[in-house]
Design a protein around this nucleic acid. Structure first.
Lengths: 181, 181
DNA sequence: CCGGATTGCATGAAAAGTTATGAATTAGTC
DNA sequence: GACTAATTCATAACTTTTCATGCAATCCGG
């Protein structure tokens, strides 16, 4: 049997009265509708929903894509630094790197000075895969932001960076570097 | 042995020359530093990093928390609608619901009219758990946005909602509801 | 230098998520 | 009304992530 037996009580009425509203997103005035964390998560989610299928198909997964993109920016980062940049915890990144390494897209090399560290390098094969993906991503961004002026886009990005910086400042308990900031 | 034998070539130099910069976030001018998807993901990530531990501990997981929060807003949604709202795919939500159901925090009830549908209801026990969590979330939001004026906060949220709406419009192929929009 | 604390990364076991698919029900068409 | 298509949700099989932990290398106080 598919569902529990008593989940569906006997039918109530013939078939009158319309179906509920199929609206997207949270209802106006609800908690989540105005909750910043939710808005950020939803924005991130729906904004990238359009490219993710393409990126995932080519790179083998969104996590893989993110790592490759970061490595094109900065090659040879340590594992923990790369994890931070790609927004992963360290064990997760280690395993993503295993997969990327198995495909010959990245390479781990021990740091010569601090032998605890492992530096991650993108291979030529990895670059050959990543570069076109970055173009795809840029093209998607262009489409998504077509309705905004350059100034508006700049303002949006500035605002996001500010949110990021402030969050980091709050989350980082250390003594304030400068109270006048 | 822990790593591949040849990962660490012989040490290079005594110990002069400083260690690399430990900066947080992507380097200025890099691709990801200005890539909207990344900014949104990073903002979402670091912004909520502060509450997530607390919410997770109390609710059993961030996914669980999101579902409960949505249900406090709107009780009795269908599974697919709730999945959409909580930003999960349907099978994932089904499993989150299994867990929540096992703890007696939610209940599934078959829709009387359309017997394919299953409506999800939060239980009194679930409410008792969720309400304080929402307070925690609100408190966190207050802390995080303390540096902004009410108007600035409103502007930020409006901006995010606009990004969401536009993304949805672009991702939804259907004919434009109103070309004059 | 020596020993304890710390850092950087990997890894194993357990938990959670994903993909593909199936079953039940309803909708639509002729 | 019967038949096919479409919707809604669950589930099984497989993959990925997480949590905790271990080991090696460095750091640091004496």
């Amino acid at each position: 049997m598919r569902r529990e037996p008593d989940r569906h009580p006997p039918r109530r009425k013939s078939h009158a009265e319309a179906k509920p509203i199929p609206a997207y997103g949270p209802p106006e005035g609800s908690f989540v509708a105005g909750y910043m964390s939710y808005l950020l998560a939803q924005a991130s989610h729906v904004y990238s929903a359009g490219v993710h299928p393409r990126l995932k198909e080519k790179s083998g997964g969104i996590a893989e894509w993110r790592v490759l993109a970061c490595l094109v920016d900065v090659d040879g980062m340590s594992v923990s630094r790369l994890a931070e940049l790609a927004l992963f915890n360290q064990p997760r990144l280690s395993k993503v790197l295993d997969r990327l390494g198995a495909q010959g897209l990245i390479e781990r090399r021990g740091d010569t000075d601090d032998r605890r560290r492992v530096r991650v390098h993108i291979t030529p094969k990895g670059l050959a895969l990543a570069r076109p993906l970055i173009e795809t991503a840029k093209q998607h961004e262009a489409e998504m932001l077509a309705g905004y002026t350059d100034e508006e886009v700049a303002a949006i990005k500035r605002m996001l960076k500010q949110i990021i910086d402030r969050s980091l400042a709050i989350n980082t308990p250390g003594p304030p570097t400068d109270p006048s900031d």
